[in-house]
């Protein structure tokens, strides 16, 4: 359930867990009281109801407590979110272009791939452009998502913490093959990445067809 592979994952999962626990507690409380009252005050056992029109202290109580809870949730959400927006200055920059129905990634030296290769433990900034309609880059394992919209350069970033290969999906409906607009992000050790980058760039300069692999 909680298998994040980026530096954001803990804050996102923590906020989720926090709200989940409160939610389950509230749901159990509500459901329990509902069932308990229905059984205890069933007409068969409890013929005469007692009219209680309300209680100001109770109303205040169940206005103030939820207010405190939701403000805490808000703050926790904002705290995790600030990280997602706060891109380190030294982040490596990759331009992501979305088009029906594929992704491509352009590196700073002009290298273009259809799989995203990144080094582990390095901040990567994604500048997002669309060549046609709205898309949305979604890397579930990194808890990252940002819409890719024509005529507008959105951005997002991440710093992968585990080596491996993770799914990239399109999360904004973009027509016929929206469900197939998948690719991978491959997180490598620093040395492996450098080696790959040098080889791929050399192949590009030699005009060889770019390697397609994931």
């Amino acid at each position: 359930m909680f298998s994040g592979a980026s530096t954001f994952a803990d804050a996102v999962d923590g906020a989720f867990l926090f709200i989940l626990v409160i939610s389950v507690a509230l749901l159990v409380l509500i459901t329990f009281l509902m069932i308990y009252f229905v059984i205890k005050y069933n007409r068969k056992r409890h013929k005469k109801a007692v009219n209680i029109e309300g209680s100001l202290p109770l109303e205040i109580l169940w206005t103030v407590i939820p207010t405190i809870l939701v403000l805490a949730m808000f703050w926790y959400g904002w705290y995790g979110y600030k990280k997602i927006r706060d891109v380190p200055e030294d982040a490596m920059v990759v331009q992501v272009s979305g088009q029906m129905w594929q992704w491509s990634f352009t590196y700073e030296n002009g290298l273009v791939t259809d799989t995203l290769y990144v080094p582990v433990d390095t901040p990567v900034r994604l500048n997002l452009i669309s060549l046609d309609v709205n898309h949305s880059i979604f890397i579930p394992a990194f808890r990252v998502k940002e819409d890719v919209i024509p005529n507008r350069t959105n951005f997002t970033w991440f710093q992968a913490t585990n080596v491996g290969s993770y799914d990239i999906a399109c999360a904004e409906y973009c027509g016929l093959l929206h469900a197939y607009m998948y690719t991978k992000v491959v997180v490598m050790e620093e040395e492996d990445y450098s080696q790959w980058f040098v080889t791929a760039s050399a192949e590009m300069d030699a005009g060889e067809p770019e390697e397609i692999e994931s």
Partner: peptide, 30 residues
């Protein structure tokens, strides 16, 4: 009516998860 309260509570509580910005980024459009 009681079924409403139960289901609406789940709907409302999952809404809280979406209201939190960091979680929203992850679960939006899923």
């Amino acid at each position: 009516a009681l079924g409403f309260i139960f289901l609406f509570s789940i709907g409302g509580l999952t809404g809280l998860m979406q209201g939190a910005l960091s979680i929203n980024i992850h679960i939006h459009d899923t």
